[in-house]
């Protein structure tokens, strides 16, 4: 088939138009991506408090800039990159702030989730490595950010954007790659209660840890509630049941509480972390479900002044309502 120069020109023109169409369709795709990016709202939650942000709002927040790089689980190094974004502390402040009993859970669009501790977010408690030797090296201040810019450009989808976690460090340092969550769409502040132990001392001794106490304090197990004269609801385990675990050799089987010993009389000493103590006769406590060792107040863990446990209940004086309990001791005659 013979083609004239004119026809050839026409065909070249058609090809160029086709190329433009292909390029346009690519641009259209990209631009639809951009539209999606603009519509992405970051959701931040802390209990019932919810805040959503658009990209524009995130970019208007005070930003941090610096260097960061990562070491993958296979030992490969990526970066360092110049990064810009918003501190997770700043984002946490929008829903009440991060405190030592809070963990920060970051959730990605692909179902990946990572939980950061208070020490990581606030104190920069990460391991840093030399990207060449891959050895651990000391570091100064590290900052965890929700990054939206890398090397002066928006973070692309392929780079894990538009929002991804980054840890700002010195330029010649990298951190573990699994902290650098891609495609972040949600940040959740979750309570991570500190561990504690209650020491019971009597005919036998027992340490009850937080998990065991909370499990015993569920409704249907040994959990009870008591409302004080200010209408505050305290929740915990009756003191006499805890006493019954160590009043004789039988901690929990059948009738663990020894009623016969009550007749003989003994005292129960409740000791706080700072050494303060109150001693009560067993006759005031035995079988009374309205004198409880509480671990929750109005459905929340106790405030710092009482945490982790406080003795509360009917007829107790203010002084007798010992907070920050660490030990319950049975004093036999």
């Amino acid at each position: 088939m013979k083609i004239s120069v004119r026809e050839l020109k026409k065909e070249i023109l058609l090809v160029l138009v086709s190329l433009l169409l292909v390029a346009n369709s690519g641009l259209a795709l990209q631009s639809s991506d951009t539209t999606v990016q603009e519509e992405i709202a970051l959701k931040i939650t802390a209990g019932d408090t919810v805040r959503t942000l658009t990209m524009e709002e995130i970019k208007k927040m005070p930003s941090l800039e610096g260097w960061g790089g990562r070491m993958r689980s296979t030992g490969e190094i990526e970066g360092p990159f110049a990064l810009k974004g918003v501190s997770l502390i700043e984002l946490g402040n929008l829903v009440g702030g991060i405190n030592p009993d809070t963990a920060v859970k970051v959730i990605s669009r692909d179902g990946y989730a990572m939980t950061f501790s208070y020490k990581q977010i606030v104190e920069g408690d990460y391991i840093t490595y030399d990207p060449v030797s891959k050895q651990e090296v000391p570091h100064e201040e590290l900052q965890t950010i929700l990054a939206y810019e890398t090397d002066g450009n928006e973070i692309t989808f392929q780079q894990g954007g538009p929002l991804r976690i980054a840890i700002l460090s010195a330029k010649n340092q990298v951190t573990d790659g699994h902290w650098w969550c891609k495609w972040v769409e949600e940040i959740e502040l979750v309570p991570v209660p500190k561990e504690w132990t209650l020491h019971l001392k009597g005919a036998i001794e027992e340490n009850i840890d937080r998990g065991t106490f909370e499990s015993g304090a569920t409704e249907g197990c040994h959990g009870v509630k008591w409302v004080d004269d200010k209408g505050r609801e305290w929740e915990g385990i009756p003191l006499w049941l805890l006493v019954g675990r160590v009043d004789d050799e039988n901690p929990h089987e059948g009738k663990a509480f020894n009623d016969a010993l009550v007749q003989e009389g003994y005292e129960v000493k409740i000791v706080a972390v700072d050494g303060f103590s109150v001693t009560l006769p067993i006759s005031n406590i035995a079988r009374r479900n309205n004198i409880i060792v509480a671990y929750q107040l109005n459905g929340q863990f106790l405030p710092e002044e009482y945490w982790p446990l406080r003795l509360v209940g009917e007829g107790l004086t203010g002084k007798e309502q010992v907070g920050q309990i660490k030990e319950i001791e049975l004093l036999f005659p």
């Binding site: 070491m71 030797s133 573990d176 699994h178």
Partner: peptide, 9 residues
């Protein structure tokens, strides 16, 4: 460390 491989270093 985050993986068995990175313990090597």
């Amino acid at each position: 460390r985050n993986s068995s491989v990175t313990l090597v270093f």
